[in-house]
């Protein structure tokens, strides 16, 4: 039977959430961008509501992709958007001063999804900013008793975004199987 899966993209302002959804959902994407007045980030616009796009899967199911605003002042929206979500993709910008602290903030704020283990982490701009390395990310996650996949990605490339979604869907299937086994 065809199903709908709600997936959340989150991460700091400029990490590429809108770009990632646009890369796979195409022209019919819904955007809620406003002119950016925060001079600390060189970006013309910023998402202040949410981005929305859809992908139809070959089996008839639909992935509903929601992008959150990045800034902490929009945390009230993070909680709203997380309701009913099956999985989370956290995009980290490796060019920022402390990407691991950024990651920690999103893991804390989406604790329910993190607890269920349905989270994929995409690290961007690692070509120009190789540190922290993927090993550092895995050590960081291990220190929080988390086993989550981390990938270096360029979210302008649809293949990279689809790969993260593929992995997330596989994790969801495994999670369902475990629930059935233990249920």
């Amino acid at each position: 039977m065809a199903e709908e899966h709600k997936i959340i993209f989150t991460g700091t302002m400029g990490a590429g959430k809108t770009t990632a959804i646009a890369a796979v959902a195409g022209k019919n994407m819904l955007r809620t961008e406003a002119a950016n007045t925060d001079s600390s980030v060189a970006k013309a616009t910023t998402t202040v509501g949410f981005d929305y796009g859809e992908i139809a899967l070959p089996n008839g199911s639909v992935l509903r992709l929601y992008g959150t605003p990045g800034q902490a002042r929009f945390a009230f929206l993070w909680r709203i958007l997380a309701r009913g979500a099956l999985g989370l993709i956290v995009l980290v910008d490796n060019s920022r001063p402390d990407p691991l602290a950024d990651l920690a903030m999103y893991l804390d704020n989406f604790a329910d999804l993190v607890r269920r283990g349905v989270v994929v982490i995409g690290v961007g701009r690692s070509d120009t900013h190789p540190e922290p390395s993927l090993d550092s990310y895995y050590r960081f996650l291990e220190s929080r008793q988390l086993m989550l996949p981390v990938f270096e990605v360029d979210v302008r490339e649809s293949e990279h975004v689809l790969m993260m979604l593929d992995v997330l869907l596989s994790m969801l299937e495994m999670s369902d199987c475990e629930d059935e086994t233990h249920g």
Partner: peptide
Amino acid sequence: GRRLAAMVSSLHAVGAAMIED
């Protein structure tokens, strides 16, 4: 006031996107 500003911007953006759509 700061919280209100964030919520206002979000609601406005969602409302405007809906009207456009």
